[in-house]
Amino acid sequence: MQATVNATDIVRAIEVWRPQDAGGPFALCSCVYGDDDHIEEGRRLRRFELGEGIVGQSAQTGQPHIRSCEDLIDDGIDLAHSHVVSIPFMHSGQCKGVVLLACDESEGNQGAMELWRPNDRGELGLAEAWHSNLERFGLISKYVKFPRRAGLPGKVWADRFPRVMGSLGTSQQFLRAAGAKAEGLSTGIGIPLMRTAMQLDSVLVLLSANRTPIARAMEVWAMDPDSKKLKIVSADYGAFMDLAPMSRQLSLGIGEGIAVHVLRDCAPWATWDLLGVEFPRGEKFLEYGFRWGLGMPVFVGSEIRAVAVLIN
């Protein structure tokens, strides 16, 4: 337990950019910075029009991208030895927000961000990726293809619904399990990014290692049709297994939790205030050294199908 509590957080920055009106520009709405909080003041002053920078490009096209921060100097993202994924959240053709998630790729830091897109053979192929210190796993991934319902990306594609998968190294459902076990990857989440209610743009996959986690807790929340409250339908807490029972028993209503905040605004949101937001779990999160949370809506057409939550 203690080794995991002291794990290295490789997430250097989380930014949530939201439009100030229906057509933009996009301004920084919420953010999480670890040791790089000195950049916040400058980022708060930035604005991105549709098509401008990685934020504006993702908002305009509805397409996510993975880029080295060294290639984003004009965007003002001054984070050396890092990669960033831009994630747009499209609601009936309108961008409700763009998340920038930046991860440190320094020596020893392991993790992966992947974008899987349909090809002309009706399969998902790897379109863009960042595999930090995972050369063998990254090489294998270039040649893997996923039909519908095959592996984590294929299941997310078929269901048009996000999914968390734990114990990657031993999971029969994770088709790259041998590579994950060899490289120490532990948990993954797949999120569908839809062009329309029926047409997929891509599946975003984030793969986390115990020693250098992108997130130590990954959750998917959806509306329970009977109680009309949000409940967990898929989650993994790694070594923090005692979080699982209390989390799965939660039934979130108005004003409760990251997932409800996202559902209320129909937009992504990041927070440092786990104690204040995640009652009654906040005290446990702080006890285990968790510091931040990120919630992301999963839109299918005009409907929010689920909310994906990362906590670390």
Rank of each mutant, 00 (worst) to 15 (best):
L175V: 13
G257M: 03
G169V: 00
Q94C: 10
S302R: 15
L207A: 09
A197K: 15
V203N: 00
P19K: 05
R47G: 03
Q60S: 14
L206T: 10
S186P: 02
E49P: 02
H65N: 10
A22W: 03
G51I: 01
C69P: 00
T196K: 10
N210Q: 12
G93C: 03
I232C: 12
V164Q: 02
G122L: 05
V11M: 00
R211H: 12
G34A: 10
A209Q: 01
I311F: 02
M194E: 10
F279Y: 13
D35P: 04
A150D: 05
D273P: 07
D35I: 10
F279S: 15
R305W: 06
G169Q: 05
P280Y: 01
E128N: 12
W116F: 05
F279D: 14
V233R: 13
D71F: 14
A182W: 04
V233H: 06
N109F: 02
A13R: 14
Q63E: 12
V156M: 06
R216F: 01
S92T: 14
V262Q: 03
D35F: 11
D120W: 12
A178Y: 12
V307G: 07
K229G: 08
I73Y: 14
L126S: 09
T187G: 02
D21Y: 03
E114I: 06
I54V: 14
Q60I: 06
D265M: 11
E52L: 08
P268V: 06
L72P: 00
E183Q: 11
E105K: 15
E114K: 12
L252G: 08
L310M: 11
M198H: 14
I73G: 07
R43F: 07
D104G: 04
A209S: 14
D35Y: 05
F290E: 04
V98K: 02
Q172T: 14
P280N: 08
V144A: 11
V309H: 05
V98A: 07
A112W: 05
G289H: 03
K142M: 04
L139V: 06
I77W: 10
P118M: 04
L230V: 12
D74A: 15
A80P: 07
G293C: 02
Q63K: 13
A22F: 07
S68A: 13
A215F: 02
K155N: 04
V262N: 00
P88A: 03
W272C: 09
S141M: 12
L207D: 09
D37F: 13
N133M: 02
G51T: 03
T271K: 05
T4Q: 15
A244M: 11
I311K: 12
D236M: 07
E123S: 14
I77Y: 11
E41R: 15
L286H: 10
A178F: 10
V98S: 01
Q249T: 11
F146Q: 00
A59N: 00
I254N: 13
R136H: 13
V99W: 05
A197G: 13
W269P: 10
A215N: 08
K284R: 08
I254H: 15
G293N: 00
R46E: 09
D37W: 14
P192W: 12
G190S: 13
R176C: 09
W157S: 01
Y143D: 13
Y33K: 03
A217F: 02
R47C: 09
E107N: 15
F146C: 03
P192Y: 08
S208F: 00
M90F: 00
N133A: 06
